[in-house]
Structures are given as C-alpha cells and as structure tokens.
Write a protein that binds this DNA or RNA. Sequence first.
DNA 1: ATAAACTTTCAATAACTTTTGAAAGTTCAG
DNA 2: CTGAACTTTCAAAAGTTATTGAAAGTTTAT
Lengths: 172, 172
Amino acid sequence: MQLAEAKAKFIADWGRFGTNWGINRTMAQIHALLLISPDPLSADEVMEELSISRGNVNMNVRELIDWGLVQKVIVPGERKEFFTAEKDIWKVARQIVKERKKRELDLMIPVLKELSDVEGDKRDKAVKTFTDTINNIRKFSDQADRTLDTMIRADEHWFLGSLMKLFGGKRD
Amino acid sequence: MQLAEAKAKFIADWGRFGTNWGINRTMAQIHALLLISPDPLSADEVMEELSISRGNVNMNVRELIDWGLVQKVIVPGERKEFFTAEKDIWKVARQIVKERKKRELDLMIPVLKELSDVEGDKRDKAVKTFTDTINNIRKFSDQADRTLDTMIRADEHWFLGSLMKLFGGKRD
DNA sequence: ATAAACTTTCAATAACTTTTGAAAGTTCAG
DNA sequence: CTGAACTTTCAAAAGTTATTGAAAGTTTAT
C-alpha cells in the first residue's frame, strides 16, 4: 500500500474505533493524524487534511488537550499554534485509563456509597437483593479503583510488563 | 433512604454510567432493574417499571442477552417469558470485557496488520513515523489481546485475585 | 383449525450529538 | 493605539441514534 492510502485508511479506522471508546469520530481522526505526523501541525493543516471546519478543529483539539493526548507546541518565529500527539502508545493508553477513571469510577464510588444504606427489614427479599447487589458492586469498584491507581502510578515498563509476566504473555 | 427511592436512583445512575461503556441508556436501565430484582421479570413488568414501550424492551433485552448479561427464564405454567440478570458482578465484568474484546480488539488487529506494510523509503521521515506508529500500536494490541484472553479464560477468583495481590490491593 | 396470548419487526418520529461558519475575542508587531 | 493574524464561541443546520406503537408473526391450548 502507498503511504497516502494507508494514512487515509488509518485515519478513517481510528475514527471508527474511537467512537466505541467515548471519543467522537472527529476527535479520534485528529488524534490519528497527529499520531502519524512527524512534525507538529497547525489548525489550518488539520482543517485541510481532514476537510473539517475551523470551529470543529478548535473544539476537538481542545478536548484532546484536556485528555492529555495532545500538546500545543510553540514554534519560534511563528505566530500560529501547532499541535502534536504523544507517540508512545503505552503512555497514551495510560493517559486514557487515567482520564476514564477520573470521569467514571471516581464519580461512581460516592453514588454507590449513598445507595448502600437503605432503610428496611433485611429479611425482606427485595431489600436484601438490593443491598447485596449494591455492596457487591461497591466491593468491585473499590478494588478496581485501587488497582487502576496502582497501574497509573506505575512506571510504563513495569506497568504492563509485570502484568504480562503474570498472565503468561510474551514480551518482545 | 427508602428502597423505592434507592431503586429509582440506582436505575437512573446505572443508566447514566452505562452510556460511557458502549451500552445504551435504556439497556443499562433494564440491566439495573434486573440486577436488583429478586425474581425474574416479564416484559410487561419491565415496561411498567421503566415506562418504556414494548418494542424498546424487546430490543434492549435481546441485546442484553447477546451480551450474555441476561437470560430468559421459563416459569412452569406461565405463557410469558421472564428475564433475569447475572448477579455476580465479577462475572458481569468478565462478560463485558469478553464482548468488548470481540467487538473491538478482534476487529482492529487485522486492520493494523494490513496497514503495517506501506511501500516507500524508510529514510523518508513521513514513512518512518507512520510505520513506527502502526507497529507500536500493533505490539500494544497483540499484548492486550493475549492478556485479555488469559483473563477471560481464567477462573473468577484467580482472575482478579492474583492481579490484586500483584498490585498490592487487599482482598476482603 | 381457531383464537388468544404473547413476541418481533419496522417505519415514522423524537431526542440527542456533531458540524459549520460567521461573528466576537485576543494577541502582538509596528 | 491600530490592524492583521490568529483563536474561540455559539446558534443554526445536518447527521445520528433511540423510541414508539401499530402491524405482522409465532406459539400454544383447546
């Protein structure tokens, strides 16, 4: 395959997969474009390459920066802002896990705590099933919370390296 | 909090969180309702409890069954079908991981393979950055693939049990 | 074979999300 | 200060996804 074709395909595919991960299609496409660009790109270049509007580029780049996946780069002597993506995919994965934990698990835990003390007779089947279910979800979430914190804190190589050893995967 | 209030809140919250996980709101709400119901419910009961249409219940229950999170239950002497959800939250998590792997990672891996051999001079910076990026994503995906397979195959207790020990989490 | 009890489908429509582009805002060199 | 170069905002339009409900289909009891 030629580079231009492969590039277009990668951008389209990454965009498609992104939608499964709570990242909108355009945001994922911009991310893909920046991932495979050797040098930082300006908003105009992104507009041009993906045929999307200025407002759309601005909005989605801002969100990628929020997610910690893209950085602004100041090029000396240039007035424009340029953007570049973290190329190390392990760091990208770690960053995504970190953000999703923050946006999902950290919000869920207090909600579950609140739900865990319903008034009522424990011998009532409906009450018992409810509290048991909530408590199981709580235990699970607390565990996941601690595990993810450890993973996020851990050094990149250690992080999945140890995990792989444990599960019998082979490091290259 | 009273049971009825807690129930309503749990259903609303689970629905909200579900949307972050590729599960639509109604589907997650039905799942929540079945999780906290001591006995299997009929389509009519789900319609009634959640104030949604028959078609909507049917569609989403079917999808929950596809995901392996809900089962049909035949109650002897009853014409209707009843539905019940897996209550063990570790099994639920395992099932979700399994399905998402099937729907996402398994589709991604062949796409990456195809993209990994672009023609062109490796000394060309654009070609080099592209192939390096794709190859890094491939290594990562292959590793994730093997790890998830191992986790899915593993026995429930072992699965996160060992993981927790490794990462210093505390089992209850 | 019939009809009642139930389940499934699907086209219309409602709800939600994304995109655009023009206007407003900001920054900076001269 | 001024105006050119750039970035950001936001309301309207387009696009996407979910929901309804009535019609079609299926199963079961008699």
